[in-house]
Design a protein around this nucleic acid. Sequence first.
DNA 1: TCTTTTATTTCGGTT
DNA 2: AACCGAAGTAAAAGA
Lengths: 231, 231
Amino acid sequence: MRLVIARCSVDYAGRLSAHLPLATRLLMVKGDGSLLVHSDGGSYKPLNWMSPPCTLAESEPDEEQAAGGITQVWTVTHKKTADRLIVKIHEVLHDSAHELGIDPGLQKDGVEAHLQQLLAEQIERLGDGYTLIRREYMTAIGPVDILATDEAGASVAVELKRRGDIDGVEQLTRYLELMNRDPRLAPVRGVFAAQEIKPQARTLAEDRGIRCVVLDYDEMRGVDSGHARLF
Amino acid sequence: MRLVIARCSVDYAGRLSAHLPLATRLLMVKGDGSLLVHSDGGSYKPLNWMSPPCTLAESEPDEEQAAGGITQVWTVTHKKTADRLIVKIHEVLHDSAHELGIDPGLQKDGVEAHLQQLLAEQIERLGDGYTLIRREYMTAIGPVDILATDEAGASVAVELKRRGDIDGVEQLTRYLELMNRDPRLAPVRGVFAAQEIKPQARTLAEDRGIRCVVLDYDEMRGVDSGHARLF
DNA sequence: TCTTTTATTTCGGTT
DNA sequence: AACCGAAGTAAAAGA
């Protein structure tokens, strides 16, 4: 990511045409070549931008532009549409580049993690007499989301998903196979818990003796009183 | 505007619906205290953000957090909704501040401006014998979008909108009232022209003797051949 | 086929 | 009237 603070004017031609008069702004060039033009206020939305896939070309100003105080011209062209963003730079006040790497940023992880936290707090949703042993119980092939015991004290491994798909059942199956080889744990039964369970996944799970539990996320959130609510 | 590149994780307090795992990101602190968290890819939309009005507080990590590698904690609190964004910073790779000043803002030469231009060129869409007098005809309370004369030579004030709402009818009514006091112009009739006119607006307009005209933007564009098209 | 993302959207709610 | 952000949207893109 490259960050440039510059006095510039910007023109956009595409779905509509728009113009930004000369002012000092932040130009954010992302790794994929996309460009965001931000001011020091307003909303999270840039003043103007070009979405990927696009290419940025830097060029020298022509004589007329140079006479007008323009020191460089950026032309950002969209690869599929004819959209174009033209940045006329008068003065560069800051210019730095940074390696950020790819972002794991998934909102899904948030919901899944929250579901895990909620189910750990409300483990009785799996059945009366259930007790939480541990979240993220580590095995040789990865962490089991939740390990619990049922009313008889037998181990139960819980695989948690937002959307219960076949992949999740396979994953849980692998954990169960491994854990059932450990005499300190065996016998371990499986519970496949999700907000929504696909019919194919349910069929496969039940065929393997894995119980399916559909979780009501909103209801679980409503019950949750572990910490002060903001709303 | 302050720009920080940091390895950080981000959480909403209360609802974990948006958790961002540890990664290197751009933290953009705008002059109004609002915060934008950007990754090096994706859309123009930040991964997460807090809109103004809000305040940013920097604090030291507690012992547990420090043991986990957190060097500082930013808490961004919304002033009205109690929304909270918590940024746990592990490592700061860049930190710079810049004075940008206020931005003059985006000039959209979008649909409304284009509609005005097109209607000026195709003024006969209002009726046979219509003649354009002037675009942006200035009055004491602001410019009338289009001033024309009808087949009988009487003045017609046109208010142009993309979406014809009640506000637009009120605006035109004020113009008409003012212009009809001017003996050089009076009598002036009104035309409310828009791509789409809401029923309430139409009712109000017709009740006041203002004619409503729905414009077909695409059709008008098709006729237009004044300059090269992008699509 | 189905799921996720974007839109320089469109809309309503709020200064 | 302007601004902002969500979206019983919608359409395109991606997997």
